[in-house]
Simulated scan of single mutants.
Amino acid sequence: MDDRIDCTTDKKAQDESVDMRDVLDLAMNMGRVLLKNGAEIFRVEETIDHVCGRYKIGDVESFVMSNGIFITARDETEDIYAKVKHIPISGFHLGIVTEVNDLSREISAGKIGLKEARMRLEEIEKMPPKRGRFRILAAGIGSGCFCYLLQANFWESMIAVLIGCLLYVFVIFAENHRLTKIITNIVGGGFITVMALLALSIPWPFPVRMDKLIIGSILPLVPGVAFVNSIRDIANSDFISGIVRIVDALLVFVYIAIGVGFVLGCYNKITGGGWI
């Protein structure tokens, strides 16, 4: 019994001796990791509040945008903390978002200390994405299912599966070589169109329609998570962040359309569009 009381006392003393700047640095880094990997604005703000609330830091103000976090705080000694972090809009890793979200709940419940939380956050940030072959397979299946939903026949859907898999091989190549979003989506749209034209040139014993192949195979490039998150941000009155994200998502659609339109335009000029 005495040992439990001593442990509780030591834990409280340790919590009270925590420096405000260390806590806010941890909250800032957790928010950065969340925002970088596609979390919603309200989730980032809640995480910062959970961490600061756990260590009784009261006068905290956080302002989160789609590409930046602003935090200010003041403690009992009137020391002022202010920090701004720029986070470029990048890809999505919902596994990291889930892990950081769980970590914030553990911190809020007092199950984990500040030092251990920093170490856990470093490990979470290093989490690799899913293996390439699984992502390629998922892209192919998604393309085929989407093509089938557009009332394509079974064989058209199977061709879309193949095109979707090949497309995501290129997407992973672009990620590994740090190609920009503009190049990736323009070339990806053009690649889909070239593959659809090649499929159309083969004398299949069943009908093949180009529009079904192109629209179905585009699915792996569509920024669905970004688009949905932007709507959620707008619904939560985070209008600036929501508009920035929705414009970013809409630009991806424009890049894809440029790639598709360029290949189709070149094809029509060269051959007269006899297969379309």
Rank of each mutant, 00 (worst) to 15 (best):
D3H: 09
R4T: 15
D6L: 08
C7L: 15
T8S: 13
T8V: 15
T9M: 10
D15K: 14
S17I: 06
R21W: 08
M28T: 02
M28G: 02
N29M: 12
R32S: 10
V33T: 10
A39F: 01
E40T: 09
E46I: 02
I48Y: 04
D49A: 11
D49R: 09
H50A: 12
Y55T: 12
D59A: 10
V60H: 02
E61M: 02
F63A: 02
F63P: 04
S66A: 12
G68D: 02
I69M: 01
F70G: 00
A73V: 01
D75K: 05
E78M: 08
I80S: 07
K83H: 09
K83Y: 14
V84L: 13
K85S: 13
H86W: 08
S90D: 10
F92E: 14
H93D: 13
V97Y: 04
T98L: 13
E99Q: 15
E99W: 07
V100Y: 00
I107N: 00
G110N: 11
G113P: 04
L114Q: 01
A117V: 05
L121W: 02
E122D: 13
I124T: 11
E125S: 06
P129F: 09
K130I: 11
G132A: 11
G132Y: 15
I136S: 06
L137F: 04
A138R: 10
I141H: 03
I141P: 08
C147N: 04
Y148F: 13
L150R: 03
A152P: 08
A152Q: 01
F154I: 13
I159Y: 05
I163D: 04
G164H: 01
G164E: 01
L167H: 06
N176H: 11
L179K: 12
T180S: 13
K181H: 14
N185K: 13
I186M: 04
V187A: 10
G188C: 07
G188L: 04
G189P: 10
T193G: 01
T193S: 05
V194M: 09
M195C: 06
A196W: 07
A196I: 11
L197I: 12
L197G: 01
A199Y: 08
I202A: 06
P203R: 10
F206G: 00
M210C: 13
I214V: 10
I215N: 00
G216C: 04
I218N: 06
L219H: 12
G224M: 05
V225K: 07
A226E: 05
N229C: 06
N229G: 07
S230H: 00
S230K: 05
I231P: 07
I231Y: 07
D233I: 02
I234E: 00
N236A: 07
N236S: 11
A249R: 08
A249C: 08
L251C: 11
V252F: 06
F253H: 07
V254F: 15
V254Y: 12
I256L: 05
G261Q: 10
V263E: 14
L264Q: 12
G265F: 13
Y267R: 10
T271V: 04
G274N: 12
W275T: 15
